[in-house]
Amino acid sequence: MGCSNFLTGFLNFVTFVLSLPIIGVGIWLAKQHNTVCIRFLQWPVIIIGVFILLVSFAGMVGAWCRVSCLLWVYLFVMLLLILLLFVFTIFAFAVTNAGAGHALSGKGYKEYHLGDYSTWLQRKVDNPSYRDKIKSCLSDAKVCNNLDNEYPTLTKFNAASLSPIESGCCKPPSSCNFIFVNATIWQGTSPPSAEDPDCGVWSNANLCYNCNSCKAGILQNIKQDWRKVAIVNIIVLVFLIIAYSVGCCAFRNNRWESGSGGGYGK
């Protein structure tokens, strides 16, 4: 067995084994959790796991068993995957280039404004179907529930390093000048300040889940996550390009050993 064939088969054996726990996690999510957020995640996880399993199987068998047709399919899919990852990585950096938190005097947290983010992200978060899912996810995650215990006084709350979602969704904007009762209960002014439309949307029952500041906090969180994913994608791309190059050598070996110049190895 040629070195390139062995390496291609070994790399795909590793990814084949890794795909099994990915599929297992997807099945576990489907059986153990009923929330909207988890249901949203379960099928993508299962589909990704099955896709990796099938592609790895084709590459492993094609390289180790000298089945050139399977190896050709594997290389074709790998090339598509490399192109898709490259395009997605560029797109992720482009749409997350804008937007950042605004520091506040005397506050440990930052506030976020919806208009600072890319138009594409704003349209997505304003879509009613996405908005309803986001609100359900925030409610299921209970992101604001522990703030009262963690920051019982205004001094501690002002010094808090709140996450973007906590800052945008769990409290009214500072421009509203609401009076602190506790971390999730604020006494508003009457009538609400016209400076920020979120001042009229805030309620102690529903917090700021319908506010633009909440959407901005979610987008900031998405931006941070997408930047991490994009960096991981660059690492994965390097790995895929190396694996693809080695696979091309294995495919060439299969064709050479078949003795037909273009036939399929056995």
Rank of each mutant, 00 (worst) to 15 (best):
G2Y: 02
S4P: 01
N5A: 14
F6H: 09
F6V: 11
T8P: 00
G9W: 00
N12V: 05
F13L: 15
V14S: 06
V17K: 09
L18V: 12
P21S: 08
P21Y: 10
P21H: 10
I22L: 15
I23Y: 08
K31E: 14
Q32H: 13
H33I: 10
H33C: 13
T35V: 08
T35K: 01
F40Y: 12
L41R: 09
Q42C: 10
Q42T: 15
Q42G: 06
W43Y: 15
I47P: 00
I48A: 11
G49P: 02
L53S: 15
V55N: 05
M60R: 00
A63N: 03
C65E: 07
L70G: 01
L70M: 11
L71K: 03
L71E: 01
W72N: 13
Y74I: 03
L75S: 02
I82Y: 05
L83S: 08
L83P: 01
L84T: 13
V87I: 13
F88M: 13
F93Q: 06
A94L: 13
G99W: 00
H102W: 06
S105R: 12
G106V: 06
K110T: 14
Y112T: 01
L114T: 01
D116V: 04
Y117G: 03
Y117D: 04
Y117K: 04
T119C: 08
W120V: 15
W120P: 06
W120S: 12
L121E: 04
K124T: 13
P128F: 00
S129N: 14
Y130I: 08
K133D: 01
I134H: 00
K135Y: 02
C137E: 02
C137P: 00
V143Y: 01
C144N: 03
N145H: 09
T153Y: 09
L154S: 14
T155E: 15
T155I: 14
K156P: 06
F157C: 04
F157S: 00
S161E: 09
S163Y: 03
E166G: 04
S167Y: 00
C169Q: 01
K171N: 05
P172A: 06
P172L: 09
I179E: 14
A183C: 07
T184Q: 05
T184D: 04
W186G: 10
Q187W: 07
A194Y: 11
N204V: 02
N206E: 13
L207V: 07
Y209D: 01
C211I: 04
N212S: 10
S213W: 02
G217K: 04
G217T: 06
Q220L: 09
N221S: 12
Q224L: 15
D225W: 15
W226Y: 14
V232H: 11
I235A: 12
I235Y: 06
I241L: 06
Y244N: 10
S245A: 12
V246P: 02
G247F: 09
C248Q: 13
E257C: 06
E257I: 05
G259W: 06
G261I: 08
G262M: 10
